[in-house]
Design a protein around this nucleic acid. Structure first.
Length: 837
RNA sequence: GCGAGAGUGGCGAAACGGCAGACGCACCAGACUUAGGAUCUGGCGGGGCAACCCGUGGGGGUUCAAGUCCCCCCUCUCGCACCA
């Protein structure tokens, strides 16, 4: 390695020590000052930070530092999303206890983050695996239980064999585990759910208020929640009581097309429907139907990729049409989703494509009841799915679809056979995990009293340290005698403690509240005054991969806490920046591809400032960033040049003279001064608008180029030169300090500024922005022909007169008649011409 | 299939409807050097000796003026995907 261009290593160490001893970034709520809460998604302590973290945190730090200089009281915390599977895997593989593994990872990663010079208030650091944090997970869980928002049910669940745990729907991608990528299978289990669907409507409605969120993320959440308005309609099984069993069977279907009700020719239910057993028992088709169900469920675990062909089986049962009383066959269909709507659909082959395909295959009748309003489409091969006018629908015939939906629903309501209903694609959040390294769910199963919540006073339910990791299946908690076997809090008889732990997404659903208002060891999770001062998060920054999971759960949790009177806001994140990925050779960095760039090496080679500057400069924050080893050197050279030129300045003028240049500037000096102040405007605008960090840095590079050119001039009078260059470099360093804080601090010191990061953000001198002359663009028929330099206030006539002196303009106007001139003051003159006749 | 976003030099990228390619990388030439893979200076979309001409995925349109606005098409990325 060649000699460094500047001693970044010494500089960065010294400056970081200074920040540390000054406690430079500690914050307290202060109602006399405007606040700004800048937050980056906290990392999972996997062991080392990667370039994605570097990018995420460089962006956040630039914003935090900028806002501080703009006079805001800035909260900028950092912590650790410390529960999770890898810790357990490490324990199994290498015999290290998850707690130990996690702690040492945190220590190492914290050091890495500090080496980057990120301006965090480390006093607020939290790790979700510490009892002082997760006790509140348990406390919230008990509150949710009280409110009926947490419940236990038996359900067919996504099970990942390799992680040996269940997964929430959001955590299954393409039928595979979001974490390890192995195939997810379905399994019936009893587990805890949070009633996020109770908040579906609010979460949906809240999206429209999130103007500071990328459209993309809002759309993804909207698609995930997917509200759909329709009707729930009852079809009674015929005969209503099957055989000698007393329970009457009524099946409910959900439909958005109540207007097609008279076109129903069959009803289809999901193979896993809970009433299936009851229906099939004793049916002449029982055997066939059961075979079909078994086959279907088996297939479902494998395929998952492609849409399978529609298949079904007759149940041998009939249902009654709610309005006509007609008998209709009840089928089982592989295409009916059990967990959506009611798990039963009415089959209208004439007006629904899926029903149509199903009817074709099994020879079920097709009955048209909607006439298209426009021209009829080619009938026969497809269903007519558009709205239209009803016919053959008793008294509803002649109505348009929309009216008919309301009217038919009303009719059903009056007969108590239906009602309007809103359904969501979103399903309740399954939070039980059959793992050790997570928050114990604070309930006790008592054979006499049932499910008993752990009394609040007994919290936290501590994770026992002394557990054995077998490496195969199940949580070690189940085999821990003193943990799992406890007296029932109510009857004191022997009971079994819940050994499942919580999904770690619970941990990250409220950490931003804890940062802002954490209590040391209190009876409540937050100090309310602190929360109401700091919340909401003004700027949240993280990867788009959390667009649904973490961001939806956090919104849900915040609303629940709001309703519990614990959160001052309903929406936690005011503006959201989803940063792009860091790519290398056109692909995401990964060990398997061997294209990872190690932040530690980079920092050792170029220094933290260079690494930060490059990641911010090379692409806009929300776009993917292609890593280029060579391009990093550009940022490095820039800082090296800056260092060299400030040194040259100090050699030329060891004593600072005067604060600003006198009034008599040479033309070159005036141009430079105007460049300096234009840069202030540009950088400020770029940062204020859309965090355009890349163009802000480009402006700073331009300023250094301009300063360098001026510095190289000889013959400029020293009384102008010295203060002007000083002003220029100080401005540059101040504007640079959010991006490359160490070198800015150091060179600022050399120029006599103690802590440059505490200065107020520079304000442009309006006088320096006033231009003596500007270059007018001269177009002929919209094509550039010349530029002329005149005072900005010049009139159209002035500009045209001057333009006509230009030989290119003269040539272009030869033999032409000027029809009109378009004049943009201070900018442009476009002469519209036509050949003279 | 539905939804969202994106297509600009060799590359990363800039451009309130007003000079396309700022800034950086790579490359080329020169300077300083025993040397340079260090540094500094200059050049750098394509064609043409030049005047000029052509250029922002393709095709239309609006406008004095279009990368930018409108319509159609193509390609790519991401998300959802039998949701009744």
């Amino acid at each position: 390695m060649s000699d460094p261009l500047y001693p970044f290593d010494d500089i960065e160490k010294t400056v970081q020590n200074r920040w540390k001893s000054d406690k430079a970034f500690s914050t307290k709520a202060d109602r006399t000052r405007p606040k700004y809460y800048c937050l980056e998604m906290f990392p999972y302590p996997s062991g080392r930070i990667h370039m994605g973290h570097v990018r995420n945190y460089s962006i956040g730090d630039a914003i935090a530092r900028y806002k501080r200089m703009r006079g805001y009281n800035v909260l900028h915390p950092m912590g650790w999303d410390a529960f999770g599977l890898p810790a357990e895997n490490a324990a199994i593989l290498r015999g290290i206890h998850p707690a130990e593994w996690t702690e040492s990872n945190i220590a190492h990663m914290k050091e890495q983050l500090q080496r980057l010079g990120l301006s965090y208030d480390w006093d607020r650091e939290v790790a979700t695996c510490s009892p002082s944090y997760y006790r509140w997970n348990q406390w919230f869980f008990l509150k949710l239980l009280e409110k009926g928002l947490a419940y236990r049910k038996e359900a067919l669940l996504n099970w990942c064999d390799s992680c040996a745990t269940v997964l929430a729907n959001e955590q299954v991608e393409d039928g595979q585990c979001w974490r390890c990528g192995s195939q997810v299978i379905l399994r019936t289990m009893n587990q805890w759910f949070l009633r996020i669907t109770d908040y579906a409507r609010d979460l949906m409605a809240g999206l429209s208020s999130l103007e500071g969120w990328p459209e993309r993320v809002r759309t993804m959440q909207a698609n995930w929640i997917s509200p759909s308005t329709g009707a729930e309609i009852t079809f009674e099984v015929d005969p209503l009581t099957l055989d000698e069993r007393a329970a009457p069977l009524r099946l409910k279907v959900f439909t958005t097309r109540a207007d097609t009700l008279f076109g129903v020719t069959f009803v289809t239910m999901a193979p896993e429907h809970p009433d299936m057993d009851l229906l099939l028992a004793g049916s002449p088709q029982e055997k066939k139907a059961r075979n079909f169900i078994e086959e279907t469920l088996k297939k479902r675990t494998k395929e998952s990729r492609e849409e399978p062909e529609k298949e079904g089986a007759f149940t041998g049962r009939m249902v009654r049409h709610p309005l006509t009383g007609e008998k209709i066959p009840l089928w089982i269909g592989n295409f009916v989703v059990a967990s959506y709507g009611t798990g039963v659909v009415m089959g209208v082959p004439a007006h629904d494509q899926r029903d149509f395909e199903f009817a074709q295959k099994y020879g079920l009748p097709v009955k048209k009841v909607i006439a298209p309003n426009g021209e009829a489409q080619g009938a026969g091969v497809q269903a007519m799915t558009e709205d239209g006018t009803l016919f053959d629908s008793e008294r509803f015939s002649g109505m348009d679809s929309e009216t008919a939906r309301t009217e038919i629903t009303k009719e059903l309501e009056s007969r108590k056979l239906g009602q309007s209903r809103e359904t969501f694609r979103l399903r309740d959040w399954g939070i039980s995990r059959q793992r050790y390294w997570g928050t114990p769910i604070p309930v006790i199963h008592c054979p006499h009293c049932g499910i008993v919540p752990v009394p609040e006073g007994d919290l936290p339910v501590l994770l026992p340290r002394d557990v054995h990791f077998s490496g195969k299946g199940g949580s070690p908690l189940g085999e821990h005698p003193s943990f799992s076997s406890v007296p029932c809090p109510v009857c004191k008889r022997t009971a079994r403690r819940e050994t499942d732990t919580m999904d770690t997404f619970i941990d990250s659903s409220w950490y931003f509240l804890r940062f802002a208002g954490g209590t040391p060891e209190g009876a409540a999770p937050f100090v309310p005054e602190d929360l109401s001062y700091w919340l909401p998060v003004d700027q949240y920054i993280g990867g788009v991969e959390h667009a649904i999971l973490h961001l939806l759960y956090s919104r849900f949790f915040t609303r629940v806490l709001y309703d519990l009177g614990l959160s001052p806001v309903q929406e936690p994140f005011n503006t959201l920046l989803t940063q792009g990925m860091v790519l290398k050779d056109g692909a995401k960095m990964s060990k398997s591809k061997g294209n990872v760039v190690d932040p530690d090496h980079l920092i050792a080679q170029y220094g933290a400032d260079t690494v930060r500057l490059f990641t911010l400069f090379s692409a806009p924050p929300d776009k993917d960033l292609s890593w280029d080893d060579k391009a990093v050197e550009g940022a490095y050279r820039f800082l090296g040049r800056l260092y060299g030129r400030v040194n040259a300045l100090l050699e030329e003028f060891p004593q600072a003279t005067g604060d600003s240049p006198g009034t008599e500037l040479t033309p070159d000096a005036a141009a430079l001064r105007s460049k300096i102040h234009e840069t202030i405007v540009r950088v400020t605008t770029d940062l204020d608008s859309h965090a355009q960090l890349n163009t802000a840095i480009a402006a700073l590079m331009e300023l250094l180029n301009a300063l360098g050119s001026y510095q190289a001039l000889s013959g400029e009078p020293a009384p102008v030169r010295a203060p002007l260059l000083r002003e220029g470099y100080l401005t540059l360093l101040t504007l640079l300090s959010p991006f490359a804080p160490h070198i800015a601090h150091h060179l600022g010191e050399r120029l006599g500024i103690d802590r440059i990061e505490t200065l107020s953000w520079p304000v442009a001198d309006p006088k320096a922005l006033v231009k003596e002359t500007v270059a007018f663009v001269i177009q002929i028929n919209g094509k550039l022909r010349a530029t002329v330099t005149l005072p900005p206030g010049s009139s159209q006539d002035d500009v045209e007169r001057e333009a006509r002196k230009d030989e290119k303009v003269v040539r272009a106007l030869e033999g032409q008649t000027v029809m009109k001139g378009i004049f943009v003051p201070g900018k442009l003159l476009n002469l519209v011409v036509r050949p003279s006749s």
